[in-house]
């Protein structure tokens, strides 16, 4: 009989019932980070432009969307999207109950669905090839917004945070 291994990595999507304010997003992401076992993580949601992108008011600044700094695991970075869902790859199934508890602690008043599935692609797409050429580290796949002109990604590591793209679109 074949049984699922509990040591294989799993992919999970956390979808809160509401869009999160930066402070709540920070709380949620820190709780998830504190749970541990994260191989990679991406946040997803509608874009927050720094200025009006089109129409008669094109170019007018949107002060509300600027400097949305959040701090995760001691590293600060700027939010470019309204946090609507968080996709994660966890080292193994054993981190899932902790993740559920972390979401309940961070979002006591907001319903939250946690789905297990496949959320990161495994083979490079044409967009990936156009941006990176041959992909050396396959963990990067699925972390990039394919519509962004450049990759927009914050890499959290032990030594510091790198924001690859600060250019406005």
């Amino acid at each position: 009989m074949v049984t699922a291994s509990d040591t294989e990595s799993i992919q999970v999507e956390v979808v809160p019932g509401r869009y999160l304010m930066p402070a709540t997003a920070q709380k949620l992401l820190n709780e998830i980070y504190g749970n541990g076992g994260i191989v990679r993580m991406t946040i997803h949601g509608p874009n927050l432009p720094r200025s009006v992108p089109y129409g008669p008011g094109k170019g007018a600044p949107i002060a509300e969307n600027r400097d949305l700094l959040i701090e995760i695991g001691g590293q600060a970075f700027e939010l470019f999207v309204k946090v609507g869902r968080v996709r994660l790859e966890l080292e193994s199934e054993k981190f899932l109950p902790g993740l559920k508890a972390a979401c309940e602690r961070a979002l006591p008043n907001i319903s939250c669905s946690i789905k297990k599935g496949k959320f990161f692609h495994t083979r490079p797409t044409i967009s990936d090839y156009a941006k990176f050429g041959k992909v050396e580290d396959e963990r990067i796949l699925g972390l990039i917004d394919p519509k962004a002109k450049k990759e927009r990604m914050a890499i959290l590591s032990e030594v510091g945070v790198t924001i690859e793209d600060k250019e406005e679109r």
């Binding site: 809160p16 019932g17 869009y19 304010m21 509608p46 874009n47 927050l48 949107i62 969307n65």
Partner: peptide, 17 residues
């Protein structure tokens, strides 16, 4: 789109607060 935490409809340009 889902609503904001405070029950407002999401607006990318933040026209109401």
């Amino acid at each position: 789109l889902r609503l904001e935490e405070n029950g407002m409809q999401f607006d990318m340009l933040a026209r109401t607060e």
